[in-house]
Write a protein that binds this DNA or RNA. Structure first.
Length: 269
DNA sequence: TTGTGTTTTATTGCCTCC
DNA sequence: GGAGGCAATAAAACACAA
C-alpha cells in the first residue's frame, strides 16, 4: 500500500507540500491567495503527484472509499482526486493508442516488405513462362508443318499447366489476404491490441492487390486496413468473359481440393 | 520580456449502469 | 434518477525560443 507520508518524506527538501510555500519571498501572499481564492487553478505538488501516480499504478479506478482515503492522505478534495484519476486515465489511453499505432505500423511495414518480395518473385516466374513459351514456339517451327495441329495442342497444354502453377501461388497469396482482412478488427484487452493483422505480421503471407503499383491513396487505405478489393487476378482471364463471378471458378487450380474459402471469392469478385 | 506551444487542472454534457 | 465514466474543451500554469 502506498503511503503519502513515505512519498512526502522522500521528497522533503526538494519541494514542500504547496508550491506557494516554496516561494519564500511571497509565500504568505500565495498561501493567503490559496485559501481565500479556492477557485484559482493550482498545480499539484510533486509529492502529491508522485503519491497519486503510485496509487494509479496499483489501481487506475477509484472506489468511493479509496477516493476519500486518498484525498485525506494527500490533502486534496475527493473531487480533485477523482478529476486527477480521470485525467490520468485519459493520458494513459492516449499513450496506449500511440503504442498500438507503432505496433501496427511495424507490422504493416513487415507485410509490405513480404508483399514486395512476392511481387518480384511473381515477375520472375512470368518471365520464365514467356521464355518457355518462346522456346516451344521455336521448336514447333523447326519441326515443320506436318505435325502442326497436334503440336499446337501440346503447346497449349504446356502453357495451361505453367499458368496454373503460377496461378495457384497467387491464390495462396490471396487467401492469405482474405485471412487477414476478413477477420475481426483489433480489439482491446487491458489496453493491448490483439489483431490478426499483428499476428499475420510474423507469417510469410502476403496478398496480391494488383499487378501495377499501388497508388498513394491505396497505400494509405492499406495502411488503415481500408483497401478495396483488388481487381481479378490475371490467372483467370477466361472467366472475365463469362461475366458470372458469383461462384468460385470451376477451373480453378485447387487440383481437386474443395474450395472452402468462399469468402475469398466473394471478396475477390 | 514576450509570444507560442504544451501540459495540467477543471468543467460540461452525454452515456451507461444500478 | 443519481453516480460515475468518458470525450471534448476551457483555462491556468508552465517551458522555452527569440
Amino acid at each position: 500500500m502506498v503511503s503519502f507520508e513515505d512519498v512526502n518524506r522522500a521528497n522533503r527538501g526538494s519541494r514542500s507540500f504547496f508550491r506557494a510555500l516554496d516561494q519564500e519571498e511571497n509565500g504568505d501572499e500565495d498561501l493567503d491567495e490559496y485559501f481565500h481564492h479556492p477557485e484559482k487553478k493550482r498545480r499539484l505538488t510533486v509529492d502529491q503527484v508522485q503519491f497519486l501516480e503510485k496509487s494509479f499504478e496499483v489501481e487506475n479506478k477509484l472506489e468511493p472509499e479509496r477516493k476519500i482515503q486518498l484525498a485525506k492522505e494527500v490533502g486534496l478534495q475527493p473531487r480533485q482526486v477523482a478529476i486527477w484519476f480521470q485525467n490520468r486515465r485519459a493520458r494513459w489511453k492516449t499513450k496506449q493508442l500511440e503504442k498500438d499505432y507503432d505496433a501496427l505500423q511495424a507490422s504493416f511495414n513487415s507485410l509490405k516488405a513480404d508483399y514486395d518480395n512476392l511481387l518480384k518473385e511473381k515477375d520472375k516466374l512470368k518471365q520464365e513462362v514467356v521464355q518457355l513459351t518462346d522456346k516451344l514456339l521455336v521448336k514447333e517451327k523447326e519441326k515443320g508443318n506436318s505435325e502442326e495441329p497436334q503440336q499446337k495442342l501440346v503447346v497449349a497444354e504446356q502453357e495451361s499447366k505453367v499458368s496454373m502453377a503460377v496461378g495457384c501461388k497467387q491464390e495462396d497469396m490471396s487467401s492469405a489476404k482474405s485471412d487477414i482482412f476478413d477477420s475481426e478488427s483489433p480489439h482491446y484487452t487491458d489496453g493491448v491490441v490483439h489483431s490478426s493483422l499483428l499476428e499475420a505480421a510474423d507469417s510469410s503471407y502476403a496478398f496480391e492487390p494488383e499487378q501495377s503499383d499501388l497508388s498513394q491513396d491505396e497505400e494509405d487505405n492499406l495502411s488503415k486496413g481500408l483497401l478495396h478489393p483488388p481487381p481479378i487476378p490475371y490467372i483467370f482471364p477466361k472467366l472475365e468473359d463469362d461475366g458470372d463471378y458469383s461462384d468460385p471458378p470451376a477451373t480453378s487450380c485447387n487440383f481437386g481440393f474443395p474450395l472452402e474459402d468462399h469468402a475469398f471469392w466473394s471478396w475477390a469478385y
